[in-house]
Design a protein around this nucleic acid. Structure first.
Lengths: 211, 211
DNA sequence: AATCTAATCAAGTAATTGTTTGAATACTTG
DNA sequence: CAAGTATTCAAACAATTACTTGATTAGATT
């Protein structure tokens, strides 16, 4: 094989893979799926696109081997396909967080500075997971309390008023924890948001990636 | 700001960044620039595209902050912009090497199995850097001997016949070391190719990323 | 078997991205 | 300051990618 042919072939194949990452909806889908399996319609609703469109993005992600699917009854559940798929997305995300002004500006505009980076869990704090129950069940930060965001208004009594509440959800671009912090503050709690999700820590131990 | 607006804005901004990675020529350019600064024409020649086309890809990479440029006389030298830019490309590359069959097949077809993964430098071996002198000067593996590929035919006498020669160049998709191994074997040497380049190790120590 | 549901497919159009060509710009050197 | 060189720009065309719509498929339920 010619050197040029070899390089063209390799770099085109890799570019084909990276193209799977280069669409806003697909990145959002990866973030979603990293937190647990979802059906096509759930994904479509969460990302505010049509079902057909979501299906097409999922096909593309599946062809790129970034996600996998399994059928259960009438539903097809999609999930992220392995540790390296998330690691690559994470590397791109971190690069953008560090180097892309548009990302920094939008984040600051939306969230201000009232969030934690990293999980140096303070002494006098409670870690609160506000994702849906199935996502909590699929994996969560150690010692976190699970109260899905919809139930939070009714379950404020369960939270200690003398502790700082650290809320987290699906990662830096998920808004569930932002809503939680807003609600908690409005009710007199000391609340702050953690940007990372459990996956960003779990990557260190391989346990959840046994696929 | 609306939740949906926030997410659209963020994911679109990141997708804009990842699009910079989703073209074969741009990936090849990143590999090149990671090994040292190059002028537009050098890049065009190496990647077998026109100068105007290379310039446009470089503009795009520069807008995405993956590369930076500086003028020196008539020339503009482009170089990779920081550690995380290379780290993201590395994460994508590793994902492709592990999960993309097209990449694996092409690599095997071109190179067979006669290469090393990782640099567990054996005792009785000599590490040979066959890249151009300026790239060697910009950074290299410890204890490596520099003989640019063009000079290799005339300088075979400098190499020990009782040792295994481990040749490396710009990374897994560079063909310089393959040519070297071929030449060395044809001349009776025991030669093998290392796929990684010095950057893949240097990432561990931060020294070279002081930009 | 008929019906229902979730998901996918196919086709058409819209939008974006890539490449080529030739001209223009920015800087250097004589 | 004129001439030369490396790079960029601009415009036109080509190729790819994305989204919508409506129909179809695959499996579950009755």
């Amino acid at each position: 094989m010619e050197n040029r042919t070899f390089k063209d072939s390799i770099y085109n194949a890799i570019a084909g893979l990276t193209k799977a990452f280069s669409h806003a909806n697909r990145l959002e889908i990866l973030d979603l799926l990293a937190n647990g399996e979802k059906t096509v319609e759930q994904i479509a609703v969460q990302t505010a696109i049509t079902v057909a469109n979501a299906s097409q993005h999922l096909q593309l992600l599946k062809n790129a081997r970034l996600v996998k699917s399994r059928r259960e009854g009438n539903f097809i559940f999609y999930g992220i396909n392995g540790r390296k798929a998330y690691a690559a997305w994470q590397a791109l995300r971190d690069l953008a967080l560090e180097a892309e002004p548009a990302v920094q500006v939008t984040l600051r505009q939306f969230r201000g500075d009232t969030f934690l980076k990293g999980v140096a869990s303070p002494q006098n704090a409670l870690l609160l997971d506000v994702r849906p129950p199935d996502e909590f069940a699929a994996g969560h930060l150690p010692n976190a309390l699970s109260i899905p965001i919809e139930e939070l208004p009714q379950r404020l009594a369960e939270l200690p008023r003398q502790k700082t509440i650290i809320a987290y959800c699906r990662g830096p671009f998920c808004t569930l924890a932002d809503e939680a912090v807003q609600l908690l503050k409005a009710n007199g709690f000391d609340a702050v948001r953690l940007e990372e999700t459990y996956l960003d820590h779990k990557l260190l131990n391989d346990e959840i990636w046994q696929n």
